[in-house]
Nucleic acid binder design. Structure first.
Lengths: 238, 238
DNA sequence: GTCTATATCCCGATAGAC
DNA sequence: GTCTATCGGGATATAGAC
């Protein structure tokens, strides 16, 4: 990934490539700045400097500050949707929940600025995302909630409130991206290593599965109903 | 702060009362605006309008935008510290953890704007709070972490990473204040009722205690080591 | 297509009238 | 003490030179 803007000679082919390249520079820089200062607190000037381009160039490529912001939000929602798998009541709860936690964790830490951009938008009352939240996302939550309830009816997990459970997974995973400054300050680390991420992922999976009484899926075998089985991924305690 | 009877000069008293009253108006309004738009995105003009005072009045009372912001952060840290109880290894894990979750939940929902103000500060890289995070708060976390580890050594709970556990409790409770817009959009509610709060609190306590394998403290009785006892506060499932 | 120069407005902060 | 008027600077956005 080159970090310098392309202002080279306009040969027919490289024009489009240059434009695409500069757009990517702007989007990456804008995600950082918007995440850090929020919509109003971010200035086009600051975004331009972060992208090493003139301010007018940013507005020329993106049209307006608001259009740029909306485009970034849409990109983040797209990433989000990419891991919102469909699940059915026939699936194994343990597998689905661990995969859900793992993917959410990876998304947050693969795109920390996007995650913080989203967080800042919600923190400010979600002026640009209300429709998405109470429409598309709400439907997604409701459909998964129904599956969780059916799992509980079949005795595959405890009858917990499925919406609170989804919020628990969202909040506890996103925390490591959104509150990174706090996490690093308290742990004294400079960054979270791959091992840390793996450790946290296993910790959260363990707590959620055990906390919800999810039975291990063992085909052709009876499952003990009141024992707390040792899970295969007991987290290290530091 | 004196509470003098002073009947001689009521005008002098009402002056101070007016000042105190206006300061409270400004602090409340500023907390809302800063929480919504972040430090840079908030304008003194907007704060003044929210407090129904002239802009110059806000700066006259508070000195500067930054002084006002720092004062609000300090107030929130003070509220925070007020519930950071000391705990010892002799205390009952179940009681301590449930009380911790309950208090944290109440704090977040009693002061949602303060919670969001803090969140915005962390989201932006904690420029004003880094010292607090890597100093006072870090020490607090370490001391509690050591107690959790000792509990695990005594077999009172599973040997989970205590710092991840603290982050889990923080994130999952704060979520309902910081991401209120998302929670309300998805649940379709206009506000979270007292019953909702109680339900969420019990849900989180249940998951954390069961997920960490916290044994119920029963003095003078042996504790079954591998059974998952039914907790007294099994959450309703909706 | 790109970037300089500029238009218009709002920012935080202050001086000075009352 | 309170508030109007204003300052210098920076905001978004655009017009126009190259």
């Amino acid at each position: 990934m080159t970090s310098s803007p392309c202002t080279a000679k306009p040969s027919a082919i490289s024009k489009e490539a240059t434009r695409a390249h500069n757009e990517q520079l702007i989007l990456a820089a804008a995600e950082r700045i918007f995440a850090r200062h929020g919509y109003r607190g971010a200035s086009v000037q600051a975004i331009a400097e972060a992208a090493r381009l003139p301010k007018s160039n940013v507005l020329y490529y993106m049209g307006s500050k608001q259009a740029l912001y909306v485009r970034l939000l849409a990109r983040m929602m797209q990433r989000w949707n990419a891991l919102l798998d469909d699940i059915s009541v026939e699936d194994d709860p343990a597998e689905v929940l661990t995969a859900f936690i793992r993917r959410k964790m990876q998304l947050s830490l693969r795109h920390p600025e996007g995650s913080r951009l989203f967080a800042a938008e919600i923190l400010g009352g979600a002026p640009f995302l209300q429709e998405y939240l109470s429409g598309e996302l709400r439907d997604w939550v409701e459909s998964r909630a129904r599956v969780f309830e059916q799992w509980a009816e079949r005795g595959l997990m405890d009858p917990v409130n499925p919406v609170w459970l989804i919020f628990l997974i969202w909040s506890s995973t996103q925390h490591y991206a959104d509150f990174e400054a706090q996490v690093l300050g308290i742990t004294g680390k400079e960054t979270l290593s791959e091992d840390d991420i793996e450790d946290i992922t296993r910790f959260l999976s363990r707590i959620v599965l055990k906390g919800c009484g999810v039975r291990q899926h063992k085909k052709g075998r009876d499952v003990q109903s009141d024992a707390a089985p040792d899970l295969p991924f007991v987290a290290a305690s530091d």
